[in-house]
Design a protein around this nucleic acid. Structure first.
Lengths: 97, 97
DNA sequence: CCATAATTTATCTCACAAGATAAATTCATG
DNA sequence: CATGAATTTATCTTGTGAGATAAATTATGG
């Protein structure tokens, strides 16, 4: 495994973790996020567990569904909690949008 | 075209522009970058022109070859010129690495 | 202008991301 | 524990990103 492969895997892992952390933060199931993002449940599972070389479009959709900036997936200060408008615990709309 | 498609296209465009700007900054041809990154010349052309829904691995390889942080591709302050160690005009090593 | 380099476009192939669906596993909670 | 929800794993299909290669087009310098 080349060092670049390792770097890739580390990005894939970190992005997956960030996505999962954020989903939990919003108290969504994979199924909820599936409806919000358009991605299927198995696909989401694989992405969050770092099993996929995701396409940009997928990340854009997920960031949008989770109401975070795409850039946040790449600036892992690992503990990105709340930025105000990004947390809306009550009555989060689960309709597909 | 949904608004999310538009957002995707705008990211694809901006990333392509950033990559091309950076390549020119280093005074590399597509062929040079091809050797450095492992991507083929036609592929690079398509990416820089915003014709592709790139995979994460491709972006990681390109950022590495161009010696920029991956995050820089997603924080487009549009005019990211020099951050010191990222500019090495003389004797830039064209060997594949 | 011409020659050459750089880039774009085209074709064909392969690999794999992601969809769809179902079954298996794991996790909560009563 | 049992039961139902959540997640993971598996299988099959489809679409497309990216490699390889070549030809066409567009810069650029002499």
């Amino acid at each position: 495994m080349t060092p670049r492969d390792q770097e890739l895997q580390s990005w894939i892992d970190r992005i997956g973790q960030t996505l999962r952390r954020r989903r939990k933060e919003l108290d969504l199931s994979l199924e909820d996020l599936s409806r919000l993002s358009g991605a299927t449940v198995p696909s989401l599972s694989n992405i969050e567990r770092g099993k996929r070389d995701v396409k940009l479009s997928t990340l854009v959709n997920l960031a949008s569904a989770l109401r975070i900036d795409l850039a946040e997936l790449f600036t892992d200060d690992a503990s990105e909690t709340n930025t105000e408008a990004q947390n809306l615990p009550a009555g989060y709309d689960l309709e597909d949008d």
